[in-house]
Simulated assay, not measured.
Amino acid sequence: MSVWITYAPWGESLAELTEAARQAERAGAEVVWAPEMHRSATISAAALAAGTESSMIGTAVTLAFTRSPMITALEAMDIDELSNGRFILGLGTGVRGVNENWHNVRWESPVPHLRETVSVIRQIVANSHRGEPMQYQGECEHLRIVGYQRPAPPVRTSIPIYLGGVGPAMTRLAGRIADGWISHELCSPLALRETALPALEQGLTQAGRTRRDLEVVVSAVCSIDDDPATARRWAAGGVGFYATVRSYADFFALHGLGEDQQRIVDRFAQGDVTSSYLGDYVSDRMIDQLTLTGTAEQVRQRLAEYEGLADAVKLSPPTHGLPPEVIRQAQQRLIAAIASWS
């Protein structure tokens, strides 16, 4: 298989999360990823860095605007030191409501703001050990540091930065400035081919870069069981969760699933169902088109559809609406499948 297999581990505790990452590393996962939702992505990544030996460690994704670029750069250098140069800084904007309501940070011009954030982080990583002034004046970000010097050089003066993006403008930005792009959790080969890759190519062309300058990472909910129907139902909750977001209407319509999504939107809006039980209203065809489910062999065949389109696939076990014991079962079957594909 020419597509790299990477993994987003799950755990109720940091210890369980780290153990799952170790198992995935032994199974052959090239990267283990830490998200930012119920835990801090950077703290989780630090735990994974200390608990693994050879796999790359990435954040998928760290929220870019809820920390200062200085703090993000320092955390990136610390994790890179813990991992001996194995860290990938995945950055994303999040949505407006999360920024303003959860984190009390401003939401303005997200595309130029992220571009400037990346520039400042790269400047700090490259120069913070030199003791020289560091300055940046942009539309959204301002930096003026004098008389500051880290006591030792970083492990690397350039840490890879991947950008998460859904819309065309943010995806083009990844093509222009990033070392890699990380997709939305539901990214079919169709969506990758029809929407994401053209935007990435536009960004690459604008910057005078080529496809070889960018790693394309597809994210996928992956549910494996000897009974395909069981695997399909485990994955249903994640699809239902994303289907409640009205702004994804074009995405679902692209797959001929507009009516399926609207039924879920209507039920959710009427209060008929909470986000924990949306899987009951997700059709099998939604699951089949937007997730990787089935037996290990069936999923391996589905993964082959990304060859020639993506460089890596980030697999994650199903979690939405499932009790911990079921998530653990799904995770163990997924890690076993990764080992069988290696």
Rank of each mutant, 00 (worst) to 15 (best):
T6E: 08
T6N: 05
G11F: 04
E16N: 03
T18L: 01
A20E: 12
A21W: 04
R22H: 06
A24H: 06
E25V: 09
A27P: 07
A27W: 00
E30T: 08
V31F: 01
V31C: 02
V31Q: 00
V32E: 10
P35V: 07
A46P: 07
A50D: 11
A50W: 11
E53H: 11
I57P: 02
G58C: 03
L63S: 10
A64L: 09
A64Y: 03
F65V: 12
T66S: 10
R67N: 14
I71S: 08
E75S: 07
A76H: 03
D80Y: 05
E81Q: 09
E81K: 02
L82D: 01
G85W: 04
R86L: 05
F87S: 06
L91R: 05
T93N: 10
G94R: 11
W102T: 07
V105Y: 01
R106G: 06
S109P: 00
P112S: 12
N127T: 10
H129W: 13
H129F: 11
Q135W: 02
Q135G: 08
G138N: 10
G147N: 13
A152K: 14
T157M: 01
P168T: 01
T171Y: 00
T171I: 08
A174D: 03
G175T: 13
G175E: 07
W181P: 02
E185K: 04
L186A: 13
C187S: 15
S188R: 08
L190H: 15
A196L: 13
A196W: 15
Q202C: 09
L204T: 08
T205P: 02
T210P: 13
R211F: 03
D213M: 08
E215Q: 13
V218I: 14
A220H: 06
A220Y: 02
V221M: 12
V221I: 15
D226S: 12
A236V: 10
F241D: 06
A243V: 10
A253Y: 06
L254Y: 12
L257N: 09
D260T: 14
Q261F: 15
V265G: 06
R267I: 07
A269W: 00
G271Q: 05
V282S: 12
V282P: 09
M286A: 14
T291K: 05
L292D: 06
T293Y: 12
A296V: 12
A296F: 09
E297P: 04
Q298R: 15
V299H: 09
V299N: 11
R302L: 14
E305H: 13
Y306W: 08
L309F: 10
K314M: 14
P318A: 12
P323I: 00
P323F: 00
E325S: 11
I327F: 04
R328S: 04
R328V: 07
Q329W: 01
A330D: 02
Q332F: 00
Q332D: 11
L334N: 02
I338W: 00
